[in-house]
Nucleic acid binder design. Structure first.
Length: 659
RNA sequence: GCCGGAGUAGCUCAGUUGGUUGAGAGCACGCGUCUCAUAAGCGCGGGGUCGGCGGUUCGAGUCCGCCCUCCGGCACCA
């Protein structure tokens, strides 16, 4: 039997799943379900990434044993995926023994291949800064902050993977397998990156306990990224169940977010090459979901909880939105208004209403029983199989949005078919009895086919529709069920609307703040200034249910940890070769400090001199473009806009505490 | 700044290797209409200098050049 093994990225467990993570799982699930429909023995893997220092920290903060914390998060993730009907076959955690076995195996193989060397972390070191310096940070070979001190060339023990060795093999692989990384934008980006040269990467961390020990040096643990990638292989038995591994490896598809393509399309294949293992067939880097055009962020309140979204209209409507409204591979936007709109149009008005009217007519005119009794009307003669073909072509190319849209062409055609044949007119003339029967049969058959095609996207709704049109929803197979059929009697069930229409007047149920676009039932667009399309200046809109739970707020003590002070800018200049950074000399009352601010796009250095601003006084120093920054200037940074520094109507003296 | 992508109706986008597109779909909006149906369905309509300027061509949204704007990737976003 043909097999298909696909994976999603494993998720960091330091925060709960949001709509962005859900998006990836749903899209992968659509592909998995489609492959099953096509008769593939399918294995769909998901999981959690637990060996992160952030996880360790987060657990400690909550006073939990890290593993206990991860146990809780696993339940959280599983609950979410279950709610969205994500049909994973396996769920791996990187703290499981089988994963440790896989990591150990592959690390040993790479080591044996001579591609891991106990090296040194080498680099320039400025004693003045107590920091490593990159070559490019140095000016004339000297630290820009301490030009009188000669930087030292320092070495520190570490383990390295010879990634550089795989530049050419990777380029060859990309050339031989154009489909290896999709979509093309991602592929080109990565190709340029590889062409630009690869440097060996550190694969170990010393002095840490949270992680998998390096087999040949238990004092070190495997670096979290190296560790995480291996989950795909350890989940199917690498280092353990040989038979299983032989059966499922290599993976057919890794579905990942575009932010981590580099790890999956460069490091991971190189690791596999080194270990003498096959490379995955394909990697697909999907885009991100935004909320009202803004990136999902906790502080902006633009996080959408997938469970809340599923609770609003149902998990299938949410899945349909994610799949149909977003070009798979590109970024997509979610808004509650659009979500409601798509629900009404696609599901209530078109598909749901179609099922309802056809089952109602079948009952009114034929006691629910329909059989083929003549010729199929022209509207439905060729289109259904065309749609099925188009759908498959799209699905096979992972154009899942196109596949979804194509099904609605069939649904629209069926509504047209009913208008054109007017069963209610046929019913008045006994001579048209057979014609009426056939018209109803055709409609029922079209609905059946649409439901089969929708199964990967809306599994439970699909089954419900199939049940209503008198077809067994079990064990669907594309070869048999995915094209027009005119066999047998169908007994239709009339059970009322599947998706009740959501009236637009209920927008007030949307948890939109007053003043947000869409919060007014009857806006007057004609009075809007040209170019100010509603929504462009949308303030952040909290997700429903994301009402300030105590957990997201900090205590006054937390806030008091941040020492904000009034500061006066004494000098300002551009950081060389930087287009965003300004180097500022400020008076913070007790002393003068140098700090770097990313506001060069909005402020000329001269304009800042003498200005009174607010700085974070007790921030750890950081070096940016080689300049050490001791503090941070507070500024408002609108998405896509230029920053504005916080200032005063009547400037207080430098050093004044701000709280 | 470098590399890549994109700028087409109010919104989201199709437009294949230049010519049956003297510019299309869906949503929204307006009008009409059937009545099986969830005030749903179906039909008609308004509305666009196809980012700007120049060029190649018998002919360009579709090719070339320059410019503008937006997005993404990388490099500095404390």
């Amino acid at each position: 039997m043909k097999r298909f093994f696909l994976t999603t990225a494993i998720d960091y467990v330091n925060s709960r799943p949001h709509l962005g993570t859900a998006y990836e799982k749903v899209c992968a699930d659509v592909i998995a379900r489609y492959k099953r429909l096509c008769g593939f023995e399918t294995r769909f893997l998901m999981g959690n990434d637990e060996h992160s220092q952030n996880v360790f920290k987060k657990a400690s903060e909550e006073g939990l044993d890290p593993l206990k914390y991860c146990d809780q998060m696993e339940q959280e993730f599983r609950r979410t995926w279950k709610r969205l009907d994500v049909s994973f076959d396996d769920f791996i955690r990187t703290t499981e023994p089988r994963h440790r076995a896989g990591v150990t195996e592959i690390t040993n193989r790479i080591h044996a291949a001579g591609d891991i060397y106990e090296g040194v972390y080498e680099g320039w070191y400025c004693v003045g800064c107590e920091e490593f310096k990159q070559e490019k940070d140095l000016v004339d070979g000297n630290c820009p902050l301490h030009p009188t001190l000669k930087p030292e060339w320092i070495k520190e023990k570490n383990y390295f993977f010879r990634l550089s060795k795989y530049q050419q093999p990777l380029l060859d692989h990309f050339a031989a397998h154009p489909e290896f990384l999709q979509p093309d934008v991602r592929r080109n980006e990565i190709l340029r990156l590889i062409e630009g040269g690869l440097v060996d990467i550190s694969v170990s961390r010393a002095g840490q306990s949270w992680g998998i020990p390096l087999p040949f040096d238990p004092e070190s643990v495997v670096y979290v990224w190296f560790d995480a990638l291996i989950n795909y292989a350890s989940a199917v038995g690498l280092g353990g169940d040989q038979e299983m591994f032989a059966r499922w490896w290599p993976a057919d598809l890794h579905v990942i977010g575009k932010d981590i393509t580099r790890f999956h399309a460069v490091i991971w294949p190189a690791m596999l090459m080194s270990a003498g293992l096959k490379l995955p067939q394909q990697i697909f880097g999907h885009g991100f979901m935004t909320m009202n055009g803004q990136r999902m962020s906790k502080t902006l309140g633009t996080i959408v909880d997938p469970i809340v979204a599923a609770d609003r209209l149902g998990h299938d409507p949410l899945r349909l939105y994610l799949v149909k409204e977003v070009t798979f591979g590109g970024d997509g936007d979610f808004s509650w208004e659009r979500y409601d709109e798509r629900y009404n149009v696609d599901l209530a008005n078109n598909l749901g209403n179609l099922v309802n009217r056809v089952t109602a007519m079948a009952h009114r005119y034929r006691n629910g029983r329909v059989v083929p009794a003549g010729e199929t009307s022209s509207r439905l003669r060729d289109l259904p199989n065309e749609v099925a073909t188009c759908y498959r072509r799209a699905m096979d190319a992972f154009a899942i949005h196109e596949a979804a849209a194509s099904v609605f062409r069939l649904i629209d055609a069926t509504n047209l078919h009913i208008t054109e044949t007017a069963p209610w007119t046929l019913a008045k003339d006994p001579a048209s009895a057979d014609r009426l029967t056939q018209v109803l049969f055709d409609a029922a058959e079209a609905i059946r086919l649409a439901a089969v095609l929708l199964e990967p996207i809306m599994p439970s709704s699909s089954r419900e529709i199939l049940r209503r049109v008198g077809v067994s929803p079990d064990a669907l197979l594309f070869e048999r069920d995915g094209r027009w059929r005119s066999d047998g009697e169908r007994v239709l069930l009339q059970e009322g609307p599947l998706w009740p229409r959501k009236e637009l007047t209920t927008v007030s149920e949307n948890p939109l703040p007053p003043g947000a676009p869409g919060a007014h039932p009857a806006p007057a667009p004609s009075t809007a200034a040209p170019g100010t399309a509603p929504g462009t200046a949308a303030p952040s809109t909290p997700a429903p249910g994301a009402a300030p739970a105590g957990g997201d707020r900090i205590s006054i003590d937390d806030f008091m940890k941040v020492e904000l002070r009034v500061a006066k800018v004494l000098a300002a200049e551009r950081v060389p070769k930087s287009n965003r950074l300004l180097k500022l000399q400020v008076d913070v009352g007790t002393e003068q400090r140098t700090l770097v601010a990313g506001i060069a796009e909005a402020y000329e250095p001269e304009a800042l001199i003498g200005k009174t601003v607010v700085v974070v006084f007790n921030l750890k120093p950081a070096k940016l473009m080689g300049v050490e920054s001791n503090g941070m200037v507070l500024a408002a940074s609108p998405d896509g806009g230029k920053p504005t520094v916080v200032s005063f109507e009547t400037p207080p003296p430098p050093g004044t505490r701000v709280r």
